[in-house]
């Protein structure tokens, strides 16, 4: 089997007396969708930020394996390399579309930015690609020149997804991508993410407190509580036969769909 894309070991992080990460290990392989679930304050968002290189752990390592198979320590590669990674091989989808979009730039410009950042210099080509991606995320291409602030919340989030996936990253970090959206809008977005990720074979690290979202999208689940991974495994195994008391509580709190 393939070597992991991202491999983290012995991650520790404390905010004063609070242990955000307590000896956490995780790996993610190409094309795999892994969900990190847990309630607010469980450390799941800290884990995402540490894995994405946005926050340095007190201890532990995170290795990223590039397409050539060379492993790079995420926290030792330097900001320039990390940024290059963030606009090529990696992507980040924020909970709040405003954090992931440029609200003063048109939908087409938002999608085109990553292309231009990696050297696309043909206006017509960039526009064609942006049009294609708007269609893929079910936004009317006629709105290519509209500003995202004229879009609904669900559309903004879909635009953020298009903007992130346009360069076909190998690994995408998603922080509560459906948080703050209406339930009907959530379902459509989740389904869209599911289809795109399967289609493109992208590995996804998804942080969510939404068990239903994790069940729909993830191949594997890690359950976090108080900075520790209390249970992990195949999504249906963890959710249908939860072992840890906290996982049982989490699963029992969800209304059956």
């Amino acid at each position: 089997m393939s070597a992991p894309l991202l491999e983290a070991k012995g991650l520790n992080l404390a905010f004063g007396a609070v242990r955000a990460l307590d000896d956490v290990a995780i790996d993610i392989h190409p094309g795999e969708v892994v969900a990190i679930v847990g309630e607010s304050g469980s450390g799941k968002s800290s884990l995402l930020r540490v894995l994405a290189g946005q926050m340095r752990p007190d201890a532990g390592t995170v290795l990223y394996r590039d397409p050539a198979g060379t492993a790079h320590p995420v926290h030792g590669m330097g900001e320039a390399a990390l940024r290059r990674l963030m606009r090529t091989d990696w992507g980040f989808v924020h909970q709040n579309a405003r954090d992931g979009l440029r609200m003063g730039v048109s939908a087409g410009g938002n999608v085109g930015e990553r292309l231009m950042a990696i050297g696309a210099r043909h206006y017509g080509g960039i526009r064609e690609e942006a049009t294609e991606w708007l269609k893929r995320v079910e936004i009317d291409p006629a709105r290519i020149d509209h500003l995202p602030r004229t879009f609904s919340g669900g559309m903004q989030q879909r635009l953020q997804i298009a903007r992130t996936l346009v360069t076909r990253p190998r690994l995408v970090f998603m922080d509560e991508p459906t948080g703050g959206l209406d339930v009907s809008v959530q379902a459509r977005l989740l389904d869209l993410i599911r289809a795109l990720v399967a289609d493109l074979g992208i590995a996804v690290l998804l942080v969510t407190h939404d068990i239903a979202a994790a069940r729909l999208l993830a191949h594997r689940i890690l359950v976090m509580r108080r900075g520790q991974v209390v249970e992990h495994g195949l999504t249906d195994r963890v959710l249908d036969d939860p072992q840890h008391p906290y996982t049982q509580l989490l699963v029992a709190s969800v209304l059956a769909a």
Binding site: V105, S106, G109, M116, I118, R121, R127, I144, D145
Partner: peptide, 22 residues
């Protein structure tokens, strides 16, 4: 400053893109 340090200038082309689009 960080963008200059890393020669991360895609954003400037976004501005030109916006001009042409508009």
């Amino acid at each position: 400053r960080r963008m200059h340090a890393l020669a991360d200038y895609g954003l400037m082309h976004v501005k030109l893109y916006e001009d042409i689009a508009r």
